[in-house]
Design a protein around this nucleic acid. Structure first.
Lengths: 331, 331
DNA sequence: GCTGGTCCTGAAAGCGCTCTCGCCTCTACG
DNA sequence: CGTAGAGGCGAGAGCGCTTTCAGGACCAGC
């Protein structure tokens, strides 16, 4: 029912090989023949079968999104942390209209090297690495060139990063401009590059401003933010501003601040990071550093699609301070 | 390098057909032979190639998740509304360990019938329909048996639904038990079944309780909740409780209530629906009706996997009232 | 006019698996 | 003891495409 390559070949009076060449834009077919085949393809509405193609050339046509979930249980965080769905949305956007699939893989910390290798071996168009350690990136890269990471990672692996350090720096500077002088921080995990970079931005800013480094152990979860904010408030009751490395975490922090009877933004102004759904769901809605995750994921996908990913490729996306209700001038 | 079916056949001293029978659990192989083949498979670590399988039997092995995005621009809502990532997480959970892919498709309102048909024709294991009109469901079903909807839909299409009506009813009853008497509602879209069902639950409860139906045009977005809450508060200043058909919307409503100087939960108690990330990010965190989306999506996936989806199959998942900070007794 | 190249094109051999036939063996029954 | 029937098993033909390799046409150069 669906026309096959064979049908086209017969209708155009050429061999299957020639049709294949035309379809794949491989040189070695005269202009006239090429055009005739093209016409027949258009006329019969031929669409190459991706499965057969995949089998014949030994790989499938799909973009694989790999996410490292801290939770060994599996996909819990995937359904919960807004970051991943933004990555997916970005990849899907870049894939729209193309006949390329989108596969999703979750790699748990206890995943064997074989598991990782299998993902890499089966990858086709390439891998978008949503997060994960440099070691994971390198491992994937070994089996499959065509890996693009969305976080800072090993030198050899291509990466599209956000200006994490600058964003954090700008956020703290802004809080200072509002008249805030006791600016605390809830950092991200210390073993994740964007956590580290954002902390570095905070540290640079407070150093420049001659302020104290006020921080507590954080993480990228709401619970961590809630806990850390309570701890900070107890330790530094005169706190008047808070920079949090993730909106989800910041949402938890805002809850904690409110629980102590303080007001956000008056008593404590809060700035998050990401501009995810968590920022706009918080109350008051969070001022935050917008990270263009969708754009970054789309860019990564396009890079894979155009087949031009060089080892060590680097791209940096600027971030932007978005002001909402969680910040105001010190009264 | 990776062993193929041929390698196994040779090693076990049988034909490829026999190995295939063993792998696919097809009868027609003696116990002894079957065991021998199994042993060899285990020993050599054979994993069937899904692509070849797909080609040979004319279809691929993947679960397709179809989401209807209201936004013609494409995938915007996919990256934003927590519902979709929960569906994905559920499907992924059910797929964990199996060599089945997960494809995601977004169907925009202006999508042609051909587009929809193509998705259906290429589907293999089956389609999990995250949302969308009965018409869409039927169209998919026409080309591809093996469609499971996660929302109420056409009779002929299998569906796994949540007890939307009961959940809304219970929420309103609970608000009443707290001493609330002016209980308003922000409903979901009127053209979506779960929006309709939840509204029906609200209406049944207020009718039973002899209360007024206080409601404003809603939707499933945060913005709609924000707008509707302001409108309701203006129209009914004595409002003391609010049932909102979606957590994201409820988060917007809470912001609006706070903006008018009222307190959540004291002046106005709020109950949302879903128990998504939006509920726990709100401030105070939302009491809500928990819908086990992940479980439902996983159940749908397993249904497809076991190949036993009958037309008209129905399954109902109970919902559960989760109490957090957005509700309290009328003081 | 012949040789040596350069291009185009087609034949055919896979990619790894499924599945239909048909053969062969084994059992049951006359 | 012969034969029909049943069931296990293997041969082989695909699934739709890619890709190598060899043949053929054509042109330039001697």
């Amino acid at each position: 029912m669906k026309p096959t390559l064979d049908d086209i070949a017969r209708a155009a009076g050429v061999s299957r090989a020639t049709v294949s060449r035309v379809v794949n834009d491989v040189p070695g077919v005269t202009g006239a023949v090429r055009q005739r085949v093209r016409d027949v393809i258009a006329e019969l509405g031929y669409v190459p079968d991706e499965t057969a193609r995949a089998l014949a050339r030994g790989r499938q046509s799909a973009v694989d999104v790999v996410a490292a979930t801290p939770d060994p249980a599996g996909v819990g965080q995937l359904g919960t942390h807004p970051y991943y769905s933004r990555v997916l949305a970005g990849v899907m956007g870049a894939l729209a209209g193309r006949d390329v699939q989108l596969r999703v893989h979750a790699v748990t910390p206890d995943a064997s090297e074989e598991t990782v290798d299998r993902i890499a071996q089966r990858a086709s168009v390439g891998i978008v690495l949503a997060d994960g350690s440099p070691a994971l990136a390198v491992r994937l890269q070994q089996q499959c060139r065509r890996v693009v990471s969305l976080v800072a990672t090993a030198r050899s692996v291509a990466a599209i990063e956000a200006e994490n350090l600058d964003g954090a720096y700008a956020a703290v500077k802004y809080l200072h401009r509002l008249g805030r002088r006791r600016i605390a921080e809830i950092p991200g995990p210390a073993d994740v590059s964007c956590g580290v970079d954002r902390r570095a931005g905070y540290l640079r800013a407070v150093a420049e401003l001659g302020l104290d480094d006020l921080s507590a152990a954080g993480g990228f979860t709401r619970e961590a933010g809630h806990r850390a904010a309570h701890e900070l408030l107890e330790r530094y009751p005169d706190l008047d501003a808070l920079f949090v490395a993730c909106d989800l975490t910041a949402a938890g922090a805002v809850q904690a601040i409110t629980e102590t009877g303080r007001s956000v933004p008056y008593d404590v102004s809060v700035i998050g990071f990401d501009d995810s759904i968590a920022a706009v769901c918080s109350n008051p809605p969070l001022s935050t550093v917008r990270m263009p995750v969708e754009d970054m994921a789309a860019a990564a996908t396009r890079l894979l699609l155009t087949d031009s990913v060089r080892a060590g490729h680097r791209e940096r996306f600027p971030v932007e301070l978005v002001l909402r209700g969680s910040t105001t001038e010190r009264g």
